[in-house]
């Protein structure tokens, strides 16, 4: 099967007033139709940068190298015309914070219909009719079509975003912190909705979040990023339960087990701050915070190593830690 998305040695460097800041430092991954991948990591680890790069939405001065092959074509080298055709039709994004992701002065049916008009050449009437159908699929009543974004609740707005992402039947949907701003009940609703819709349509999903439990629940595979690199990539429930990389372990341990008072009184956090991307530690960039650090960690740069057939981790002690 041809992969929907293939990322090969992706490196992204922001150029700012403080010089060059490497945000993503060599990431490779591949998704086939129907694959669901969760991408986890703390703020600033580069996960949203990866999402932006897939549709080439990063600021113009950003330096991006490597390959991002979307449905057979390299996004990074294609012409602007082709790029515009691929955007939304090939892959769409459900952005975080639905509050500001919808244009406040346009009615929501119009916003959902906009990419349909653009990519499929439908009249705006026909496209808005399709938009109403899409709204029904995400559980929004038809009379909401003529509402403005501010008239909807946070959960409804997020569902509008999902309907919008489905509008052109893309092969890939990227959900960037799609449920972060929602309360727990609504979050569960929206997650179930995304899970069902991508399964029904055999759409590949990349879900980005800092919340490992959300990802483990929604996705088959789980990848953990740290300081611009993948440090772990494996089956989601197993990674969540027994990660190989010490950072991924710390991330999953940060969620207390419900009903375990001993753990509740003694939550596992991780000391220290995420590293400054413009001034990364040598060797394994996690070593200053690592609870099981070894002498050679500061000098040896670590790439992903096979821990099992379907499981990779970037740690020198990958065998023993497991």
């Amino acid at each position: 099967m041809t992969p929907v998305l293939e990322i090969d040695d992706l490196r992204i460097t922001y150029r700012g007033s403080r010089g060059e800041v490497p945000a993503v430092r060599g990431i490779s991954m591949s998704l086939e139709p129907g694959d669901t991948l969760g991408l986890a990591g703390e703020s600033g680890c580069g996960k949203s940068t990866v999402a932006g790069a897939i549709l080439r939405l990063l600021p113009r001065e950003t330096q991006v190298t490597g390959r991002i092959v979307l449905d057979g074509d390299d996004v990074l080298t294609m012409s602007f015309g082709k790029l515009r055709a691929v955007r939304w039709a090939g892959a769409s994004i459900v952005f975080q914070g639905a509050m500001h992701s919808l244009n406040p002065v346009h009615r929501i049916a119009r916003q959902i219909a906009e990419p349909i008009v653009l990519h499929e050449g439908l009249s705006s009437d026909a496209a808005e009719k399709r938009a109403v159908e899409l709204m029904a699929q995400v559980g929004l009543p038809a009379w909401r079509a003529s509402s403005y974004p501010h008239q909807l609740s946070g959960g409804q707005r997020q569902r509008v975003m999902i309907a919008m992402a489905l509008a052109c039947s893309p092969q890939l949907i990227i959900a960037d912190e799609a449920t972060t701003a929602l309360d727990v009940m609504i979050q569960a609703q929206v997650l179930a909705l995304i899970k069902r819709l991508v399964a029904e349509r055999n759409i590949a999903l990349v879900m980005i979040s800092h919340d490992l439990s959300v990802l483990a629940d929604t996705c088959d595979r789980l990848a953990v990023m740290y300081a611009g690199k993948l440090v772990e990539d494996g089956p989601s429930h197993e990674v969540f339960a027994a990660a190989r990389h010490p950072y991924a372990q710390a991330l999953s341990a940060a969620f207390p087990t419900v009903g375990d008072p001993a753990e509740r009184r003694n939550p596992h956090g991780l000391a220290g701050d995420p590293p400054d991307p413009s001034n990364l530690p040598t060797g394994c960039s996690f070593h200053p915070r690592c609870p099981v650090v070894r002498d050679d960690c500061a000098s040896t740069s670590v790439e992903l190593r096979r821990a099992r057939d379907d499981w990779r981790a970037a740690c020198l002690r990958v065998e023993e830690v497991a």
């Binding site: 939405l57 955007r87 939304w88 769409s92 994004i93 500001h100 992701s101 990419p115 653009l118 990519h119």
Partner: peptide
Amino acid sequence: NDYLTVAKAKGL
């Protein structure tokens, strides 16, 4: 604002 990124991502 994010809605401009969305508009760009739509391919406009």
